[in-house]
Simulated assay, not measured.
Amino acid sequence: MDDESRHFRIRGRGARSNHEGRFERHRREVIDDGWAHEDEEPLPVLRTHTAIEVPRRLITYNRSPDLPFDRSINPYRGCEHGCVYCFARSTHAYLGLSPGLDFETRLIARPQAAEVLRRELANKRYRVAPIAIGTNTDPYQPVEKDFAIMRECLNVLEEAGHPTAIVTKGSLIERDIDILARMARRGLIRVGISVTTLDAKLSRLMEPRAPSPARRLQTIRRLAEAGIPVRVMASPMIPALTDPELEKILEAGRDAGARHASWIMLRLPLEVSPLVQEWLAAHFPDRASRIVSRLREMHGGKEYDSRWHRRMRGEGPYAEMIARRFDIAMKRLGLATAATPMRSDLFRPPILPGAQLSLL
């Protein structure tokens, strides 16, 4: 696979390279043959391409003891928001694609997701528990405007009375306020809005195609005004880059209407680590080594520790300081870490097309 950063203009993208994933046996490199001329035409812009996938199953189950949910769904693979720090980038390697630029330009949509979800929820063996959406890739990334897969899934979940938790940066969630508000009145929905920084310039560098921080705060406000429980997520906290903003992010979220909050430290699993370090060297060379050193301090000398209960926060004095600052700010601002549990008693298996209706 050629490094597309040499063949295309990548302005407006998070990653700066497109190296192969960990499962590829061969690596290709672009070499300058010396025939380039100054008067050649400029490189073309790297466009986003979306492929279609028909999933056999949509609900993914996990047994991670440090996650508040045991199942999730993802309408899309890859994410055009292009957040350079996204831990989900490494999952693109399973598709034979690069966790770099491929992750944000070669997307996979699942237009039949709602149909598959309906079938899974209607299964007699299904047992209800909250479904998380947006824990891997953002369900409200720009491509959702064309496919509307998320809205179709919400229609199924509302019909079934299924508890649902959504995490997003996308302002497109406002399109679905009608459904979300109805679910909120029944105790079936929670929404988390990720706010990584209040600095619009920094946000554009880190997450080039996500809504600006001010726009995300506006989304929190509109959801809250509709009676939808909203959590401001100060995630990820990046040492020596975004962590000084922790209290300001929480306060801005509270003022916009969020009543709950959370935080997670920057995670650098697998291919994500070199991508972030490459990005830091390009944009923040003065503090790149300091940031990586802080992460290693929190993970026993490694850039990442995948052990449960450690991967999200890290350990040691620095991690403890951030956690303490968070706790103090939460008390001062009147924010809560835990929300009211969602209802599961309203669940009714959806009716499949052509199925015989119950007389009871």
Rank of each mutant, 00 (worst) to 15 (best):
Q356K: 15
I133R: 05
I52A: 07
I108P: 02
W308G: 11
L101F: 14
I228H: 10
E159S: 15
E38W: 11
I59H: 01
L352T: 07
V30G: 05
S64F: 07
I73N: 04
P274D: 00
K331Y: 02
T48A: 09
V30Q: 13
F326I: 06
M342H: 04
E271M: 05
Y304I: 09
Y140N: 01
S344E: 15
I193F: 04
E297G: 14
H81Y: 15
L46H: 04
R296P: 06
R185C: 13
R209S: 08
M183K: 03
E207D: 10
S98Y: 12
H283I: 11
Q356C: 12
G301W: 02
L117C: 08
R27N: 12
F87C: 01
G12D: 07
E247D: 15
R254P: 01
F87V: 12
I328L: 14
P139G: 04
Y76F: 11
G100Y: 11
E251A: 11
A93V: 11
T135Y: 12
G34Y: 01
G300V: 10
P44G: 07
E251F: 01
G12Q: 07
C83F: 00
L121H: 09
P163N: 11
F87W: 13
L346F: 10
E159K: 13
E297T: 13
R47L: 09
H283K: 05
R294S: 07
V143K: 15
R221F: 04
L223I: 10
D138A: 12
V195N: 03
